[in-house]
Design a protein around this nucleic acid. Sequence first.
DNA 1: AAATATCATGGGAACATTCCCATACTGTGG
DNA 2: CCACAGTATGGGAATGTTCCCATGATATTT
Lengths: 336, 336
Amino acid sequence: MKKNLVTIIDIARQLNVSKSTVSRALTGHPRVHPETRDKILQLAEEWEYQRNMLSISLITKRTNTLGIIVPEIQSSFFPKVIMGAQEIAEKAGYNLVISNSNECYETEVANTKVMLANQVDGLLISITKQTLNFNHLTIFQRKSIPVVFFNRVCDEMDAPKVIVDDFDSAFKITEYLIKKGRKRIAHLGGPVNLKISEKRMNGYIACLNKYQLPVDRELIINYDLNLEKLPIYVNHLLNLGNPPDAIFAVNDPTAIDAIRIIKKRGLRIPDDIAIVGFSDDYAASLVDPPLTTVSLPLAEMGKTASQLLIDQINHEGQRKIIIKMLKGELVIRESA
Amino acid sequence: MKKNLVTIIDIARQLNVSKSTVSRALTGHPRVHPETRDKILQLAEEWEYQRNMLSISLITKRTNTLGIIVPEIQSSFFPKVIMGAQEIAEKAGYNLVISNSNECYETEVANTKVMLANQVDGLLISITKQTLNFNHLTIFQRKSIPVVFFNRVCDEMDAPKVIVDDFDSAFKITEYLIKKGRKRIAHLGGPVNLKISEKRMNGYIACLNKYQLPVDRELIINYDLNLEKLPIYVNHLLNLGNPPDAIFAVNDPTAIDAIRIIKKRGLRIPDDIAIVGFSDDYAASLVDPPLTTVSLPLAEMGKTASQLLIDQINHEGQRKIIIKMLKGELVIRESA
DNA sequence: AAATATCATGGGAACATTCCCATACTGTGG
DNA sequence: CCACAGTATGGGAATGTTCCCATGATATTT
């Protein structure tokens, strides 16, 4: 594996100076004669010298690298967060190493090992649905490497967390339906043991309560988010003696599929029944009718998380349990 | 920045052995007494020892890291490629560092510098639309670091390239329309100076020729892919004295928007006019009617590219100008 | 019993760089 | 002209690991 790499020693030998002088010239240290510096810089340029971060990091104990682990990168959700994180990291001189746990606990653990071995200065992570044991993350804290959680956070660990205010967004969009005159609003929710499902459902219920609408358990469906079973639930709702005049779906894919199912039955949206989703996926604006939903501040989440991480790296020790709640925003289209 | 890191020397001191012995035990070298090895392994576990890849890489001159630079990660296109690349890289024991050039030449150059400084063993890249100068990439070759291009390739450089066979896919989907009995097939194409637009258009024209259908220049529109202007072009086609009975769009967003525009005019799809897209975006199956399109083997592209890269790393020197053309596959839905 | 092989371990160079300390030189003020 | 400040440079330790070579100790062969 000859890499033909030019080192400062090569440059030093060629110019009959010491490696110290070359190092100084290359790092912009003032204590070096301008003439010498110019010669060194010129030769470095000519020989396409690239500083070897490995040895620098070995000495300085900083890699200027942040790790980010996300559970998937297929949808646009995490890429948007990554973009935000990248922007802030880059501005602060950090390099971002992206890793995908693929919603698999073992892969996540393996990813953290790689991050540790590669000495990242800090870690951003959104855990998988399977992650229940956090030993692979507490080890970072024991080694004083800051960790910041985002989106899917770990309640058991003392670390800054950045999340979306699901309760608030669910409340807002339910309120919108109520203000549009809807009286019987159904909820197609996710599994109750999933925190985000629970929060969204609670926001929905709280809103119904505020406007003194009855909370009809018959109108609340908690399913496992497997779209294959959705037609059963949607048809069940539509077949009720007193069917709903609106549906608030726990996420956009559910809402979009519900639209398909409802249209198949010949009902008009939003005239016969209104549908709203959650998170403003790429497809939300493309379906017919375009879906009213809540857009989540994903880039903002990435920015906030990496800023918190960088802050922690810079003044190590003052680790606080900051929990940032970011608000979503109503995106009004035609489905409600 | 005290990181409290455990080193092999710490372990060696504690157990009264030399660092060489610890190193041997930890790397699974056979020449170490089972009893000694067990003691070392146990203490390493207990102290949460993590090998420092920086120093290992410094010696071995291999980081077991591959870099991948993509022009964007907002759409699902590149994430799919990355997934494929990641799978192969992981299997071969490589870590993948993902970088986003954001369709900006300067960022791409900066990204390559970071990759060089961090000593990646090889680079996968899909260049930005702006990239015309390739000095930041030829430097990799001069330092004998293999480079593999994918999707957006550089014709000027001798390196393996993995691309999608746009001509073939365009041909296939045009052929499908013809076999469905369509006689006047329009093409909503991209700018002619963009290579992929050109290839897709050529596939379309070649297919018409093969089936002895006239190539009517009036039915071919080359636009700048800015969807805002699309209604003008679509309406222009529909207002022709002899309007088309099918439209082949250069990509899915164009096709999806065309569907919206056509439905607004009260025409039925596919009865009045058939629409097909290109690349099977996430939204293609969700629109109404679901879009017939060509799915591109994106994960396959990532896999092939990283395999080619790893092959090159392993038997350095035998760099060949392999160009792999991957075939797309018809995805038949209801819009045609 | 001597010669040789096998095994377990230790010592130290090497990797590319930073950074502290030392040193030689120049110039300035008393 | 000596003391001292300031400047430019060199030397070498240190970073954490691998890997080659050396060195005893034990086992096996002749």
